[in-house]
Nucleic acid binder design. Structure first.
Lengths: 143, 143
DNA sequence: TTAATTGTAACTATAATGGTTACAAATAGT
DNA sequence: ACTATTTGTAACCATTATAGTTACAATTAA
């Protein structure tokens, strides 16, 4: 299972998209996500390194989007916060003296890459802007 | 990251596909996977419950495919050994008093389901038979 | 100068993961 | 009936991942 950092990262960027041009503190974001501000700052660090947000340190500081929300895809967010491959191979190297053991990992890698790529394509087809609009539509319908 | 049980399960079924109609013990499989037989038996238990293998207990017992390797897809294997959703949501419920917090999870679920479904479609397009043939082709090329 | 804020290290608690031992139950072969 | 083999599963262990927390130096606005 892909951990919650990705879900939280999308949440963070949706907040920044809503409050465009404002600078939002990790504490304010933590209030919406319902966690500790340090957890948010760690994820914001990944997003900053991926050039998705700009962070202003010091008093009155915080984060804002580095570019328009319509130009940030979920794939970019995923790659900013996840570094491992989607599928794990064997915990130990299989037996190289077995016909299957010697070759299964190379074959699985190709298959796994294809499956991961399919998932990536759908993430690349959704932007932060779209997420925000879906969220606001739901908020409107609920009221 | 999806754990190694899926990779090992595909490995197991490839062995059973190679030794069609034979009954293979968890110890023999463990020798190829390079792990403890109990680890194999646990995964075989999932595969049996999913009706992908048939297991013969007792002396001379072991596992064999429940049907032709060309009729077993990687998606069936994935669903046999994985029970959680691909993407985790937030560790804690987001703040329901925040417009974003109150609605982000419902929106993410839709998006995550689409991404997962795309991955599933590619897994459904590959069979154990194809994996086995790719493995054997590599084995031949390497010799 | 002060207060607010980030960045990061260090630590904790909990859960997931894979491996191991142990043993009852089932079964084949004699 | 006896023996040897094998599965199924519980119990436990070590390692790693995960998320949360405290603490504090560095940065910055006012």
């Amino acid at each position: 299972m892909i951990n919650s950092r990705f879900a939280v990262a999308v949440h963070i960027l949706s907040i920044l998209a809503l409050k465009e041009r404002e600078t939002i503190s990790s504490e304010a974001i933590a209030g919406s996500v319902n966690t500790n501000p340090v957890v948010i700052r760690r994820i914001l660090g990944d997003l900053r390194r991926a050039r998705l947000v700009v962070i202003q340190p010091g008093a009155g500081g915080g984060a804002r989007l580095a570019r328009d929300a319509a130009k940030i895809t979920l794939l970019e967010i995923y790659q900013a916060v996840e570094d491992t491959a989607l599928f794990a191979l064997h915990p130990q190297q299989p037996n190289p003296d077995c016909e299957i053991g010697a070759n299964i990992q190379a074959v699985l890698e190709v298959t796994f890459d294809r499956a991961e790529a399919a998932m990536f394509r759908t993430l690349a087809g959704t932007t932060v802007d779209q997420i925000l609009h879906d969220v606001l539509n739901r908020a409107r319908e609920a009221s």
